[in-house]
Each structure stands twice: as C-alpha cells, then as structure tokens.
C-alpha cells in the first residue's frame, strides 16, 4: 500500500494556502491530520498531485468561547477537543464523541476540520455538528463564506465545499447551561465506524423539554439531522410515548447501506436504539 507521489507544500498562512489551491485546482488537496486522506492515497483511491499541509497555520487551531458562540479551528485535533477545558465546561458532548472516534493515536492526529469536511458518512463529527447547529467557515479565492452543517452534506464525499476552498473553523451557539446531551455509538470494535450512532442535545424546563436536537451518524450516505424526531420531544416531558415517536421518526429518515456491520434493517433499528439511549441519557443529564 504505497501512495502515488505528489508535490508537498506547507504554507504559513491561510492566504498562501488558498493561493496554492487556486494555482493547482483539481489536482490539489488539503492535508490536515491525514488519517482519512493518507489511507485513501495508500489504496490509490485518491491521487492528488499537490498536497497543501495546513499544520503550520497557527490560526487554524484552538477552541474559544465568546459572545454565546463556541468557535473551533479546523486543525484542532480530536485529542485537543478531548482535553479542552472550554468544551468540557460548555459543550461536553464533543469530548464524549471524540473519545469514541478511532483510537488514541489517530485522535492525536485527526482534526475536527478533516472529520467534518471530507464528507465520509462514517465520520462522527458531522452529525454532532448538525446536532449543535454548527456553521462551517470556508475560505476560498473569493473570500470567506459560511455554510450550515445541516445543509453541507450532499452525498458520500460530496459537500457544499467548492474546489479551492478550505474549511477554517466551525462555530456553533454555546449550548444552554444545564443542557442534557449524549452521543451513543454502536460499533464492532475500537477503531470502527458506527453501525449507527446518535447525537442528542436537549434542554428541560420545569420538567418539559424546551429544545431538542437529534442527529444520526452512518445510517445514510450523509449525516442526518432528525428534525421531526427533535420536534417530537419539544413540549413533552420526554415520556415513553414521546420517545417512541421520536425514535420512530428518526428511524424513518435512515437509508443505511448493508455492510459488514449488518443489513440495512438492523442499522435502521440500531439508529433507533442509539437515539433512544441518547435521549434517555440526555434527559437524565439535563438540569
């Protein structure tokens, strides 16, 4: 498993990176943590002629909270997400999710930006970003633009991102204090993609659900934001009936492939089981 050769660039600024992409067009790819791209290159499923490594661009890393928003630089690694005190305090579901991604070594390298931008439906962060209502910040030759995570994914490996654009950061509203959350992932072993996974974020007031957000991983060729399922919880006490309805609605939007993780029917049902468990845990955690 040997990758094809390429020209390697390590720009020191975002502008320089964007310029390199503009110069080399289709033949260029951005290299972040490399743990999706390099295996693809080794299998020769990807053969970019120019690789633009973003690791020297300091502005692309880091987590910050201000003005009711959390912003995470695209080059922030999974390990940095796990150890971020800002996230542990304000948005612990990110740590919970990141810990279920791949394995320790991969998490030292794998980045949030790489995970959300390459469009692999097996990745966990895209559904979580949809759950959080995140916005992706893209920088291209024509400047900066923003795309909602819920509208970003078109099909497996196809996204709203244009050639020549670089995802620089994600931004999402800081979840309300006292919110409940859970990311539940069924997988065959450490390092596997999800058979099905569900991210749930919700807030309770006086025993009633005042907001809910559910998204699903790896049960379609894109992450799925489960709008109807989310809505089914709002205004309820999240009783058995409401959960049943939300689960059924969540299952209803899945279109999983059959693979080694199980046939489509199973994966749909597991999306439901994961959603149910995540809802229950989120409710439990909500204050």
């Amino acid at each position: 498993m040997i990758p094809g050769d390429f020209e390697y660039y390590r720009p020191n600024s975002l502008d320089e990176a964007v310029q390199l992409l503009a110069t080399h067009g289709d033949d260029a790819r951005v290299l972040a943590g490399g743990h999706s791209l390099i295996p693809m290159m080794k299998l020769r499923l990807a053969a970019p002629e120019h690789l633009v490594d973003l690791r020297n661009i300091a502005s692309l890393s880091g987590v910050s909270e201000s003005g009711g928003d959390i912003t995470i630089g695209a080059m922030t690694t999974q390990t940095e997400l796990i150890t971020s005190t800002v996230l542990s305090e304000h948005c612990p579901i990110i740590r919970e999710t990141a810990l279920l991604i791949a394995d320790p070594q991969v998490r030292y390298c794998g980045t949030l930006g790489g995970n959300v931008a390459n469009g692999d439906p097996g990745n966990d962060m895209p559904a979580l970003m949809q759950c959080l209502g995140a916005t992706y910040i893209l920088q291209g030759p024509d400047g900066m633009r923003e795309v909602e995570a819920r509208g970003f994914y078109e099909a497996a490996y196809f996204t709203e991102m244009n050639d020549g654009e670089i995802l620089t950061a994600v931004r999402f509203p800081t979840p309300a204090a006292g919110h409940g959350y859970a990311y539940k992932k069924l997988k065959r072993k450490v390092g596997d993609y999800a058979t099905a996974a569900a991210a749930v974020l919700l807030s309770m007031k006086d025993g009633n659900c005042v907001s809910a957000s559910i998204a699903l991983t790896n049960v379609a060729d894109t992450p799925l934001y489960a709008q109807a399922a989310s809505d089914a919880l709002v205004g309820t006490t999240i009783d058995a009936a409401a959960i049943d309805e939300a689960v059924a609605l969540a299952e209803g939007i899945t279109e999983p492939a059959s693979d080694g993780r199980g046939p489509a029917e199973y994966r749909t049902k597991m999306a439901g089981v994961m959603a149910r468990r995540a809802i229950l845990e989120a409710k439990e955690r909500a204050q």
């Binding site: 394995d103 065959r188 072993k189 450490v190 390092g191 596997d192 993609y193 693979d259 080694g260």
Partner: peptide
C-alpha cells in the same frame, strides 16, 4: 464473535482489512 472472510455473490472478498476483519483490541 466476529471474524469472517466473506465473499459477495460475485466473489469479491468483503472487508479484507483490519477495519473490518475482527482482530479484537484490549477493550473488547
């Protein structure tokens, strides 16, 4: 609990990498 070298109906070998072929980690 997990190992299988499976083939589809065309004889394509399924999951011949350590992503799919179940070599348990210390966790499992």
């Amino acid at each position: 609990m997990g190992q299988e070298i499976a083939y589809d109906e065309l004889g394509n070998v399924q999951g011949a990498s350590l992503m799919d072929y179940f070599l348990p980690t210390a966790v499992e």
